[in-house]
Amino acid sequence: MGALKRCAAAAALIVVQSMGTAAQAVTAPSNASTSTSDAALVSQITSRLARANGVRSHFTQTQTLAAMKAPLVSTGSLLFYRERGVIWQVETPYKKTWIMREGGVTVIDAAGQRTANGGAQGARGAAEIAKMMRAMLGGDLSGLYSQFGVEARGTPSQWQMRLVPRQPQIAQALRGIEMEGGDFLSSLRITFANGDVTQYEFSGSAQVSGLAPADEKLFGTPQ
Rank of each mutant, 00 (worst) to 15 (best):
I177K: 02
A52S: 14
F80K: 01
G54L: 00
Q61V: 07
L65P: 03
L13S: 09
A23K: 05
P168E: 03
Q223N: 15
A25G: 08
A52Q: 11
Q24T: 12
S209D: 14
V86M: 03
A40Q: 12
R166S: 08
M19Y: 07
M136E: 09
E151F: 10
L141S: 05
Q167H: 10
M19W: 07
T75G: 03
A3C: 05
S33Q: 13
T97S: 07
S37C: 06
S77W: 05
S205N: 07
W98S: 13
L79A: 02
F80H: 06
V164P: 01
L174K: 01
S74A: 12
L141T: 04
I108K: 11
Q17F: 03
T115A: 15
I190Q: 03
F219Y: 06
A11F: 04
L4Y: 06
E180A: 14
A116F: 14
Q223A: 15
W159S: 03
A23I: 06
A25W: 02
L41T: 03
E102M: 13
L4M: 05
N117M: 14
G85W: 04
N31A: 14
M1Q: 08
A127D: 09
P222L: 08
Q61M: 13
P156Y: 02
Q44N: 11
V26D: 04
N31K: 14
T92G: 07
G125V: 13
A206Q: 15
Q89F: 08
Q24G: 09
P213D: 08
N117V: 13
E201K: 13
S209P: 04
A120F: 12
Y94P: 00
Q89A: 13
Q167F: 05
Y145I: 00
A173M: 07
T191I: 10
P213N: 07
Y145S: 08
D140S: 08
L78Q: 01
W98Y: 15
P29L: 03
L141R: 00
Y145N: 11
G103D: 15
